[in-house]
């Protein structure tokens, strides 16, 4: 990986995310799409962990919504995580919750309401993605890889985030599933016009899957 100089730039709200890790320097502005291709899965994990506060950051390494992540108290960091949403490579669903509970968990947590306000929007998104409504009663272990990613996408979209992070979203999908997954960005754009999209991929994995 080529080293880059850490920067604490991008301190305005107009810049949603600015990352200055070695080998992964990027900015994310409202309404834009960025793709970050990393050399190894370990590099990808490091960037994801940094973005979501799962590893310590040094001053200047990451700026979130105009704030240096190193200066954030844990509760502030948690609050900023609610403005990001992610579709993790394996979905990142909670295994002991049914799909419906997974779907509404972050939205209910953030809004302090029950699940009913999100029902109509979730069903509409299920329709848009061609998902069977019966999935809602299943446990994540009984879903396919595509279904897990699609549920994670719907879960993220229900929170109306400022930015959506797609972590190797096309990995381990069939051709048909990739076509369906390609709709994720379109649906996100339709619902969050000023939202930003960040695709994080491992370079060799992506090349392999698109061959």
């Amino acid at each position: 990986m080529s080293p880059s100089t850490p920067t604490a730039a991008c301190r305005s709200e107009e810049c949603l995310v600015a990352c200055a890790l070695d080998g992964a320097a990027f900015e994310l502005r409202p309404g834009t799409t960025r793709e970050v291709r990393l050399a190894t899965p370990e590099d990808k994990a490091r960037v994801m962990d940094t973005l979501f506060g799962l590893r310590p950051v040094r001053p200047g390494e990451l700026s979130l919504f105009g704030r240096d992540a190193a200066d954030l108290a844990p509760d502030e960091r948690l609050a900023l995580n609610r403005r990001l949403a992610a579709v993790f490579a394996e979905g990142g669903l909670i295994s002991n919750l049914k799909v419906w509970e997974n779907l509404v968990l972050p939205a209910c947590w953030a809004s302090r309401t029950g699940p009913s306000p999100f029902e109509a929007e979730a069903l509409e998104l299920f329709d848009d993605l061609g998902l069977d409504a019966d999935l809602a009663g299943r446990l994540p272990s009984r879903l396919t890889c595509f279904e897990r990613k699609a549920i994670a996408f719907v879960r993220g979209l229900l929170t109306h985030p400022d930015a959506m992070v797609f972590d190797s979203v096309l990995e381990h999908l069939s051709e048909e599933e990739r076509r369906r997954a390609a709709r994720f960005e379109e649906l996100f754009r339709a619902r969050c016009m000023r939202g930003a999209i960040l695709r994080i991929e491992v370079a060799h994995a992506r090349a392999g899957h698109h061959a």
């Binding site: 962990d49 979501f52 506060g53 799962l54 509760d75 948690l78 609050a79 900023l80 995580n81 609610r82 403005r83 990001l84 949403a85 992610a86 993790f88 990142g92 669903l93 909670i94 295994s95 002991n96 968990l105 972050p106 947590w109 953030a110 879960r155 929170t159």
Partner: peptide, 25 residues
């Protein structure tokens, strides 16, 4: 067993990443 499995599967990290406080939840 449930919490340990959640930790090992990265589900506690996933909760944090979603902005859900794992301690409170």
């Amino acid at each position: 067993a449930e919490l340990a499995l959640m930790r090992i599967n990265g589900e506690i990290s996933a909760l944090y990443a979603m902005g859900v406080d794992p301690t409170g939840y």
